[in-house]
């Protein structure tokens, strides 16, 4: 109970502090409320609310998290309307039927529109089977496009290696390492042959290459997150508090 009260006091104190800081900044004219000030205060509030999770899971974080989910969903609905449904269905099929736009309605659009509506029938107990037609169209389309594109881009292109006998020795060594890495990793993932003897030895080299790749990916991802963290801290210190120019 004492711990819970302490958490409430901490959250309440931070809220009061945030409020006071903004009032001071607005009254001194360091933030322009009707310019971009309100946006900066909102952004700072969401940033701090999200970071409050680092202390522990709390109501402020949960409110911000749920608002974020809602806003993201609303954003995608509106963007889908403006980028897909409005230009592809509304303006090409519906508007020309009811209004003389100088363009004939494109009735071929009825086909994907119907399939799209069928997809929404997933929630109807009686007509849910119609959504299978839409999924079959999308899945078949994806499967058909995948086969030739993957063969070309991710198999044939990836099997193209530079010459092992380059004019420069370091380049030749690198080319050899790439060849060795690809072959050994493929052998490691080839489970039809028992990993013993030569195959076992080569697959061990494959594991080393994989470990280097996983380590590199981990390091790269950590630094990408760090970059985002620096961006948020910069936003708080520079854009909101104006302590950094």
């Amino acid at each position: 109970m004492i711990k819970k009260n302490r958490d409430i006091y901490i959250i309440f104190s931070i809220f009061i502090l945030f409020f006071i800081v903004n009032i001071v900044y607005l009254s001194l004219g360091w933030l322009d409320l009707w310019g971009n000030g309100l946006g900066i205060i909102t952004g700072a509030a969401f940033t701090l609310a999200m970071y409050s999770f680092l202390y522990k899971d709390n109501p402020v974080f949960k409110i911000a998290e749920n608002l974020f989910v809602g806003v993201a969903m609303g954003y995608w609905i509106v963007i889908t309307w403006f980028n897909i449904l409005k230009p592809d269905v509304f303006e090409t099929l519906i508007v020309p039927i009811f209004k003389d736009t100088g363009k004939a309605p494109q009735f071929t659009i009825l086909f994907p529109t119907l399939l799209g509506i069928f997809m929404l029938l997933r929630f109807s107990k009686k007509l849910a089977w119609l959504s299978r037609w839409s999924f079959a169209f999308i899945v078949g389309l994806g499967a058909g496009i995948t086969i030739p594109n993957f063969i070309h881009a991710f198999i044939l292109k990836q099997l193209t290696f530079d010459s092992l006998f380059s004019t420069s020795i370091p380049v030749s060594i690198n080319n050899f390492l790439v060849l060795l890495g690809v072959v050994s990793v493929l052998i490691y993932f080839f489970f039809s042959v028992e990993h013993k003897g030569v195959v076992g030895g080569v697959s061990v080299i494959g594991v080393w290459f994989l470990m280097i790749a996983f380590g590199a990916s981990f390091g790269y991802t950590v630094m990408a997150r760090m970059s985002l963290l620096i961006g948020r801290i910069q936003f708080l210190i520079r854009d909101w508090l104006g302590l950094l120019q």
Binding site: T80, P112, G116, G142
Partner: peptide, 8 residues
Amino acid sequence: WGITIGGF
């Protein structure tokens, strides 16, 4: 068409 269906 695939994108349109995806919109729904």
